[in-house]
Design a protein around this nucleic acid. Structure first.
Length: 631
DNA sequence: CTCCCTTGCGCC
DNA sequence: AAAGGGCGCAAGGGAG
């Protein structure tokens, strides 16, 4: 893992397009709808050297990558995924893949005190270069004033070039500063470097996008329209309209004032204190036992939501982009725990541009996921970190039973199902495998318990999850008994909770097993105390999962380059790739081997006491993936 | 009208 | 007193 990051070469693009918004959409470069207006790169070997200039060409980039190759430099760029994406769009895919990248914006995040529980956490801090300059070099704040990215006049271009050069200079200086700071904490620095290896792959995914199957998406849209129309027709005579079902306020009036149903739950506004009568799906699930119309109403609302989000949305983005593709943009370190997030739009409010769709929220059904298909000549391959959070909790808590259940041939959900049903585990496991229906239901309950109770969920909440999400008619006494069973089965888990909270109170920060950190600052005795405790407990597990995925990508790098494998997208415990059909089998075999032998000890200083296996699925459309075991 | 906040809900 | 966490997006509703 060790690799010198020096020397550094900083770079920055300015861009424009036939519409100003295209400046942020490098995939339009190929059609001539977007282009770079300036590109500067800079290094400091005692003297500051500066190259590049206005209207860069392929020759400019060739000289840049030649310099990088000859000096063995690491490229630094603010929001480096964007710079790398432009390089790829301009034809330098191989060069981007085979160079090291580092993003001072991400390094800044690693150094930040976040989350802060005294502040309003709904207001997320921005990590723009201008803010970093204002913080570190206040005398230079406001250097971006009077810049026009799109005015081609010589006077405006002169201002633009000066701005571009300052951007690069500040990027270089901030990178040097943040690297020095992070290196004081070697494990954090190492985690940040491993994460940075994902930059070229994420850039590729963002600039390549993914094909949307037009017919499948239209069919989905039509199906959901029919579902909604049918429900609407059924309920029209009872006063339900689309406007009402889409409005929580209007729906509450209908349900509680006109239909006379009981109010089962109220919402209290966190800021305003306003009280409203809830119409959420938990409430609807319970009301459905009292009134047969409610199940249809819930189906109606779901069909409308799903149509907009998962059919109309992707189709709109396909039309907007004009090339049959959708471009949800991956954001490295998008969550404070390190996981990636996705954005489906650029701009705000009336300037919103629908470039992508809500990839991370895509429903699990085949009909939904099949709208995304492999590009010609490629197969979609998913590697999924099996039982990821259960395994990391087993390791973090050192619970002997959980660790035992991570061994080959074991089934944690059957184990918990058996405990709940007062049955013997092996007998239960055999019954489940032979298709016994009681064992099937029991395992489902065990699964709900294993998945829900790992993070201090209450019996009350467990009851709701079981009822609403799994349609299991659980009542509170039984839910309490299951929770007790869980805690008695995995004695190490509540001990881990308490220890993790104590340690975090003492240190003021939590770390993942890889060494990624987050500060936990606030009043432990105040109203945020519970939430701070949850961060102490959850961050270590969830963040380790994120680090595991970055480690996987870093270690797969050489194989991906060799076989021409492309990173497609991330779904937290799953990584998706486009693999050329011609090398599908050997590439998967090699990738699987690497994933099963990730160098946790060298990278993190950890020797996992249990196996950390990955499952593999392959197919031509997202909804149609099949388990793949090799041959 | 725009902008911001709230409710509700999809995934992990 | 009781309380899983993390996100982003759709849509309504209200302020200005």
């Amino acid at each position: 893992m060790a690799h010198a990051v020096e020397p550094l070469v900083a770079c920055d693009f300015e861009t424009s397009g036939h519409k100003t918004e295209y400046a942020l959409q490098p995939w339009r470069y190929a059609r001539g709808d977007a282009w770079p207006t300036a590109f500067t790169y800079m290094w400091d070997d005692g003297t500051v050297h500066q190259r590049g200039g206005l209207m860069p060409t392929a020759e400019t980039l060739r000289a840049f990558f030649t310099h990088v190759r000859d000096t063995g430099a690491t490229i630094v760029a603010w929001n480096a995924v964007f710079e790398a994406a432009w390089c790829i769009a301009m034809g330098f895919r191989d060069e981007v893949r085979c160079t090291r990248w580092l993003d001072p914006m991400l390094l800044w995040r690693h150094l930040e005190i976040e989350p802060e529980y005294d502040m309003d956490r709904s207001k997320k801090k921005s990590y723009g270069l201008k803010l970093a300059v204002a913080e570190q070099y206040p005398q230079h704040a406001g250097y971006d004033e009077q810049v026009d990215f799109h005015d081609p006049s010589p006077a405006a271009r002169k201002v633009l070039l000066r701005y571009n050069r300052l951007d690069v200079l500040f990027t270089l200086r901030l990178a040097q500063r943040y690297i020095a700071l992070l290196q004081q904490s070697p494990r954090q620095w190492r985690a940040a470097q491993i994460e940075a290896r994902a930059i070229p792959f994420v850039a590729e995914a963002n600039v390549d996008g993914m094909p949307v199957d037009l017919l499948v998406a239209r069919h989905l849209e039509a199906t959901l329209t029919n579902t909604a129309a049918h429900a609407q027709a059924t309920l029209a005579e009872h006063g339900l309209t689309e406007t009402i079902v889409r409005s929580p306020t209007k729906l509450a009036t209908l349900l509680y004032d006109q239909w006379g149903l009981p109010v089962l739950k109220e919402n209290v506004g966190k800021k305003t204190g306003n009280v409203s009568r809830s119409t959420d799906k938990e409430v609807l699930h319970e009301l459905a036992f009292l009134d047969p119309r409610i199940a249809e109403l819930r189906k109606y609302r779901e069909a409308l939501t799903n149509r907009t989000k998962f059919a109309t949305g992707p189709l709109e983005s396909r039309t907007y982009n004009g090339d049959g593709r959708t471009y949800p943009q991956a954001i490295v370190f998008g969550t404070y725990s390190g996981r990636m997030t996705y954005s489906s739009k650029q701009g705000k409010n009336k300037d919103e541009r629908p470039i992508g769709f809500a990839l991370h929220q895509e429903k699990r059904g085949k009909a939904f996921r099949d709208i995304i298909v492999a590009p010609p000549g490629y197969t979609l391959v998913e590697f999924d970190a099996s039982g990821q959070e259960f395994r990391w909790m087993a390791i973090a808590s050192n619970d002997a039973t959980m660790m035992q259940l991570c061994l080959p041939g074991e089934d944690p959900h059957s184990f918990m199902g058996a405990r709940i049903a007062h049955r013997e585990y092996r007998e239960f496991q055999t019954a489940y495998k032979s298709g016994e229906s009681a064992a099937k239901d029991g395992r489902q309950l065990g699964k709900v318990a294993n998945l829900s109770l790992q993070y201090r969920t209450s019996a009350k909440k467990l009851r709701v999850v079981a009822r609403v999400d799994y349609n299991i008619p659980l009542e509170l006494p039984e839910s309490e008994r299951i929770r007790s069973t869980y805690l008695q089965s995995y004695r190490g888990v509540p001990v881990y909770w308490a220890q993790q909270i104590q340690l975090t109170k003492h240190r003021g920060w939590v770390e993942t097993l890889a060494g990624r950190r987050v500060q936990v600052v606030g009043n432990w005795d105040g109203s945020m105390g519970w939430s701070m405790g949850s961060t102490a407990i959850n961050y270590r597990i969830q963040g380790t999962g994120a680090d595991q995925k970055y480690l996987a990508l870093a270690c797969l790098h050489d194989t991906m380059v060799k076989f021409g494998v492309r990173f497609a997208w991330d779904l937290h415990d799953g990584i998706y790739f486009w693999i050329p059909d011609a090398v599908l089998k050997p590439a998967i075999a090699k990738m699987r081997h690497i994933l099963h032998h990730l160098p946790y000890r060298q990278a993190w200083g950890l020797t996992p006491p249990v196996p950390l296996p990955w499952d593999c699925k392959i197919g031509k459309a997202w909804g149609s993936l099949r388990e793949y075991h090799g041959d």
